[in-house]
């Protein structure tokens, strides 16, 4: 249980979002993009959830050089790529992942290095316990896709 602290955000994260240090509308945009790619490739909801979890934990620890624009897009791609590799059996290549109106296109090498940076900030803790672990436990037979996506958006 003590380990849980390593997976959660600082209490001040949402107040940081509301203040200037993080751009919450840029974050919304990133999440919208992640959800679009999730739908495009038919990823599980958990994949998108994890990607957002990685992104929030990163932003909680590090400031990007700009709070919107390419750094945040690069972060989104890296987080989605990591989440997809952890959860999906078929993962598109790094170039194919950048679909659905991605504003910037990054080279695999750039994303790979961003992945390494994200991993070191997250201390390689990728196996977050998510609401999905409990949901699949209690309600694996229900089709929860719709409600979960709704939860993600409302969370954003």
């Amino acid at each position: 249980i003590e380990d849980e602290r390593k997976f959660v955000l600082g209490f001040d994260y949402f107040s940081k979002l509301q203040s200037r240090s993080l751009d919450s509308s840029a974050r919304d945009e990133s999440i919208a993009w992640i959800l679009k790619v999730q739908a495009y490739y038919g990823f599980q909801p958990l994949t998108a959830y994890l990607a957002v979890n990685y992104m929030d934990r990163f932003l909680n620890n590090r400031r990007l050089p700009q709070t919107n624009g390419w750094p945040l897009q690069l972060l989104s791609v890296a987080c989605l790529s990591l989440a997809a590799k952890m959860e999906e059996t078929l993962v598109p290549s790094l170039l194919d992942l950048q679909v659905e109106g991605a504003k910037y296109l990054f080279e695999p090498k750039t994303i790979r290095r961003m992945e390494l940076l994200v991993l070191s900030i997250l201390d390689w803790r990728l196996r977050s316990v998510t609401p999905f672990s409990f949901l699949s436990f209690f309600a694996c037979k229900l089709d929860t896709t719709g409600t979960l996506t709704g939860f993600l958006i409302s969370h954003a």
Binding site: D3, A78, S81, L82, K85, M86, V91, S93, L94, P108, K109, I111, R112, E115, L116, L119, D123, W124, R125, L126, R127
Partner: peptide, 26 residues
């Protein structure tokens, strides 16, 4: 080490899986 032929896909699953499992064990 990331195998040369897997570099275009970023950090391979094998490494992510290996290290993230180690991180949860105590």
């Amino acid at each position: 080490t990331i195998p040369e032929d897997q570099k275009s896909n970023g950090i391979p699953y094998s490494i992510l899986n290996h290290v993230s499992i180690l991180k949860t064990l105590n």
